[in-house]
Design a protein around this nucleic acid. Sequence first.
DNA 1: TTCCAGGCGTATC
DNA 2: GATACGCATGGA
Length: 268
Amino acid sequence: MDYKIDGNDILLEQKDFDLDETLDCGQAFRWKKIGTDCYSGYFLNTPLIISCEDRDKNLFRLKNTSEQNFLDKWYNYLDLSTDYGELKKRFSEDETMSKACSYAGGIRILRQDKWEALSSFIISQNNNIPRIKGIINRLCEHYSGYPSAEMMKDETPESLAFLRSGFRAKYLVDAVSKINSGELNLDAVSSMPIDEARAALMTIKGVGPKVAQCALLFGMYRVEAFPVDVWVKRVMERWYPEGLPDCVKGYEGIAQQYLFHYIRNLEE
DNA sequence: TTCCAGGCGTATC
DNA sequence: GATACGCATGGA
């Protein structure tokens, strides 16, 4: 990771980073493509416009970003402390993983907010990505930013009708209620042993194994969490009927992102 | 029109 | 514990 200040912007040189593969791959739902290799989005309610200036030189521009903002927020959010080149090398001992890694080599796991990831993946169930984005967009427009659970304390399934989120509204309300009552503390969950953390999240109505694993992986950077959705189920049946290879051990969640992207595009 | 989407709750066995 | 089915909504 290397960067310099350029006027009001940060110029970042970063390998193993592709904006489409990282910001528009179904792990986060608030990034919008506003140009060629250019996205606009948020971490919590801090906005960012980021573009790739030179693909050969791995050069990215974070617009209107102070050095402090970059180091305090975006360095962590974009997971710049993790060497994905090293991970891919390790994963590539396995033939299928090797193909998946070279197919979408610019994937990174975003270190998202706990509540935003949990609530986003509650909304994601039995739903498609464009509609998930639409629902989250309506939520953020209504609240002028992504609302905390505290801000949503008075919501009911009826008051959330404007989201047009269908049967998922009551699940959001249950999550809000358990967090505000203190029955569930996401900071505490994030440091629990993985099985315990998953079980705690699954006390929320509408949170099953898949949503819990996504909340752990994308909201709490628990990279050993392995969400199995319809696509990853196909991956497992096709290539790993005996289970995942040893070379991804401890980083199953990151491997999952490569595999998810790989099989989705393979079957399109 | 019917089918499906980064699943889960419930009923039934 | 396994399996079948309904679920809100909207795009294909």
